[in-house]
Computed example of a mutant assay.
Amino acid sequence: MQIGSDVHNYMETLVGQVLAAEEFVDRFTNEQLSDIACLALNRVRPVYIRYDIDFLSALPEERLVVLKQHVDKAVEAAMAMIIDDRRKNREDNDITVIYNNPRHNEDAELEWYEQPLTRLKK
């Protein structure tokens, strides 16, 4: 068994169908389309299946419509994030770096919650 060929997320198919539309292909670069796909897929519940034809034959049409609506909303939200991308007018030197504990003491004793649960046998 191989995940990706034997088992796959049907929502990827639906997101791919939406993003293959001319309005998306003409408007966004491949990098942006990949970002939109990732963001959209993270917003929808995965539906793992083996065979599309078996899944679609057993799926009520009303449920397919609902799945497509969820995908449309997720793609719309993802597209808004890409259009308003905070990364695009950012210079490399204006990234803030915050150090929580700049001085880490390697010899400090571990806290009780950091102690290993099992002891190694000698």
Rank of each mutant, 00 (worst) to 15 (best):
V65I: 12
P60C: 01
V15Q: 00
N89G: 13
E109Q: 15
K122Q: 12
A74N: 02
R103Y: 15
R50C: 13
N30P: 07
F24A: 00
L33V: 02
G16Y: 11
H8T: 03
L59C: 04
I82S: 03
D26T: 10
L41M: 03
R87I: 05
V25E: 04
N93E: 09
A21N: 13
A40V: 02
H104D: 06
F55C: 00
R87W: 14
L14E: 01
Y48P: 00
L41H: 00
T13N: 09
R103H: 10
E62M: 07
E23D: 11
F55D: 00
G4C: 08
E109G: 06
Q69F: 10
I3K: 08
R103I: 11
E106H: 12
D35T: 15
E114A: 02
E91T: 12
E109F: 07
P46S: 06
R90A: 13
K122F: 05
A40P: 04
D6T: 05
V7W: 13
G16W: 13
Y113M: 05
V18T: 05
N101W: 04
R50F: 15
R63W: 06
I82Y: 04
E23A: 12
N9D: 15
E76C: 10
Q32Y: 04
N9Q: 07
E62I: 11
K88T: 11
K122T: 06
A74Q: 02
I83V: 15
L19Y: 03
N89R: 05
G4T: 14
A78G: 04
H104W: 13
D54R: 07
A40M: 02
D85S: 14
L39I: 09
D72C: 04
P102N: 05
Q2Y: 06
I49A: 00
F24I: 00
H8P: 03
R90M: 14
I95C: 10
V65W: 03
R50M: 12
M79I: 06
E106Y: 14
C38V: 14
A77E: 14
